[in-house]
Design a protein around this nucleic acid. Structure first.
Length: 605
RNA sequence: CGGGAUGUAGCCUAGUGGCUAAGGCGCCUGGUUUGGGACCAGGAGACCGUAGGUUCGAGUCCUACUAUCCCGACCA
């Protein structure tokens, strides 16, 4: 392609609204344009990269016998009603009506459509395993789109769905996709980690995210320094031991006046005690039912763990009115004592006794609160090792009416103890016991889910097994954010001058830059080199613009061509200068050998 | 959805209530220049986000709306 007619334009200025490197650089390099919040045009340069990412994905999936399909972006509401998601998917689902006033949505994901597609054809176990995928535009009406393509509302996604005869085979399919994803991101040549992940609204009970490591990533990852354990902070389990408090330190429960002292900081200042000596009582609405979370004052609630523990679809903090109605007090005085709702207590609260907690009475708190004595009896257990991968720690359910010995207990309560805080950098690894957790930031570019029969049973996706018995297909689903992968590649690989593309996904592999456009030999030679490169199957870009050298060099660095072939005065001696974008290194190469030399260089980029 | 901010030419900015809205980048024409975003001369391009209001007079003040961005909860 020739620069003189190529549809792009580079900018020196940083657009006001661009904040993050990939957004700034894609805009400055003339790759994308914003059309509306979270909605972008992909110009030719960007599309070339997208196509290259897609090609790698297709090759790796086809190799593993996945089959490509293409589903509609517009989906009828009926299917979503069948799966139950029309109700709870929320505002992120873009809904609209057609002229007949029927409900539709713009697909944010395709579990419903694919399950419907599969059930129309699946009749026999002989057709399984089956893995179908598509690469297509999705729309999610994000509450806050940001960072350009990193979190757009409209984006390009590869989504795949597997169908198997049983759980065992479904896990094999899952593993195969896990391997495919590793192969894909290795070929794209990004630094990434597969991490244990929470399952969120898509559901299912096993999941890994593929995180591209970058400072600007929105996700936090904890990774073991010694073993392979690596998890999203929402899911990561600390291996630190919980030491039970010394029973001799127990004190009496006593109500004390704390006028207008509401937050942990205020309490901490008022009592002149460390925040860890208080119990934080947070009230949530979990699938529209109130749930109380208890934590030590120095800990933060991990809502994803609470949601996962309760197997819920949604979790939001309760509003003030609900808090008042549950506690019978103003906001700021909630406590666990005598609360007749589901309680989920963090395991760390056993580390101490004589806590201060809200009294469920405006302007009062309790001192001397003991977790064991004061609202239920339960036994503390260490987190079982097998829970590290799937669950989130201990699950000691207290049967209703477990005890009636203490007046503070309510027989009807549902009380759980679980790990509902965040593991921290420096904590012991929960898997190997010798390593410690290290923190990274990442960009989630892919996620694999084991779904089980969540959708297939609701939507009756069944087949006959060997014995002629009807079985429900066991599913998995697998996504890669194609447009986000492009952005993530830039977040991870750029410098002050511009983008540093991994060669595998660069819009062009090499740029030919004639520096003196008034020198006939230079122009002729550069044309010859350009044709040689094309003939050798190299994606070459010819900067034939009548511009000064510096202008072209800057554009080349900004767009990030991995290899730049600079044709200047050296052509008189039969050589050109070849610059490697990544290292800045320059080599003199004989014009005769240029195509072979560039090919060789590209292999290492 | 809560909190904060901003809308002036394709992009980045300036603009005390007072004349025909200013500059840089970019664009067009001509000339010079040609190894790290050149220079000279000329030119095109804006009903200052929208609608009301205050005022003799509004880009500037007020109100509403709208769009965009930033901080929190959702996700590829």
């Amino acid at each position: 392609m020739r620069a003189s007619k190529y549809f792009f334009k580079t900018y020196k200025e940083i657009p006001k609204e661009a904040q993050t490197p990939s957004h700034i650089l894609m805009h400055r390099a003339g790759m994308i344009q914003k059309l509306a919040s979270g909605i972008y045009n992909y110009l030719p340069l960007a599309l070339r990269t997208l196509k290259k990412i897609e090609k790698i994905i297709r090759e790796e999936l086809d190799k593993r016998e996945c089959q490509e399909v293409l589903m509609p972006a517009v989906q009828p509401a009926e299917l979503w009603e069948e799966s139950g998601r029309w109700k709870y998917y929320g505002h992120e689902l873009l809904r609209f009506k057609d002229r007949k006033n029927s409900d539709y949505c713009f697909g944010p994901t395709h579990e419903e459509v694919i399950t419907d597609m599969a059930r129309k054809i699946l009749t026999s176990y002989k057709q399984l395993p089956l893995n179908l995928y598509q690469i297509q535009t999705k729309f999610r009406d994000e509450i806050r789109p940001r960072f350009g393509l990193m979190r757009g509302r409209e984006f390009i996604m590869k989504d795949a769905y597997s169908f198997d005869i049983n759980e065992e085979d479904a896990k094999k399919s899952y593993k195969l996709m896990y391997e495919a994803y590793n192969a894909i991101f290795e070929r794209i040549n990004l630094k990434f980690k597969p991490v244990d992940a929470a399952t969120g609204a898509i559901g299912g009970d096993m999941s890994h995210e593929f995180q591209v490591l970058a400072e600007t990533g929105e996700d936090e990852i904890l990774s073991c320094s010694k073993c392979s354990y690596c998890a999203n902070i929402e899911k990561a389990v600390s291996g630190n031991e919980i030491k039970k408090a010394d029973a001799s330190k127990k004190k009496e429960l006593k109500e004390v006046s704390t006028p207008n002292i509401k937050t942990i900081e205020e309490l901490s200042a008022f009592f002149k005690l460390d925040p860890a000596r208080f119990i934080k009582t947070i009230i949530y609405l979990v699938d529209e039912k109130p749930v109380v979370a208890l934590l030590r004052g120095n800990e933060e609630a991990n809502e994803a763990k609470i949601q996962a523990f309760l197997g819920a679809n949604s979790i939001t903090p309760a509003n003030d009115a609900l808090i008042k109605s549950i506690t019978g007090a103003e906001v700021g005085f909630a406590g666990p004592v005598k609360l007749a709702v589901t309680i989920i207590a963090d395991k760390h609260i056993y580390e101490d006794t004589d806590y201060i907690c809200g009294a469920n009475k405006t302007d009062y708190h309790f001192t001397g609160f003991d977790p064991e004595r004061d609202f239920a009896t339960w036994t503390l257990q260490a987190a079982p090792r097998q829970d590290v991968a799937n669950g989130c720690g201990i699950s000691t359910h207290i049967a209703a009416g477990a005890s009636s010995r203490h007046p503070c207990r309510d027989a009807e309560r549902d009380v759980h103890v679980a790990d509902i805080t965040f593991a921290k950098e420096g904590d012991k690894c929960s898997k190997c016991d010798t390593g410690i957790l290290e923190k990274y930031r990442g960009i989630e570019v892919g996620q694999v889910f084991y779904l089980g029969t969540k959708y297939s049973s609701l939507m009756n996706c069944v087949f006959l097994d060997k014995d002629g018995k009807e079985q429900v297909a066991v599913m998995g689903c697998y996504g890669i954010g194609v447009s986000r992968t492009m952005a993530a590649a830039i977040e991870q690989n750029h410098d002050d001058n511009g983008i540093i593309w991994p060669a595998a996904i660069a819009p062009f592999e090499a740029a030919v830059i004639p520096v003196q456009t008034n020198n006939e030999l230079v122009v002729e030679t550069s044309e010859k080199i350009y044709k040689n490169l094309l003939a050798a199957g190299i994606d070459a870009f010819m900067d034939d613009r009548n511009e000064r050298a510096g202008f072209k060099f800057n554009d080349a660095d900004l767009i990030g061509f991995p290899v730049q072939i600079i044709c200047g005065k050296l052509v008189e001696s039969g050589k050109v200068e070849v610059k490697i974008r990544k290292t800045g290194e320059k080599k003199e190469i004989d014009i005769e050998n240029i195509a072979a030399a560039v090919k060789e260089l590209l292999l290492s980029l």
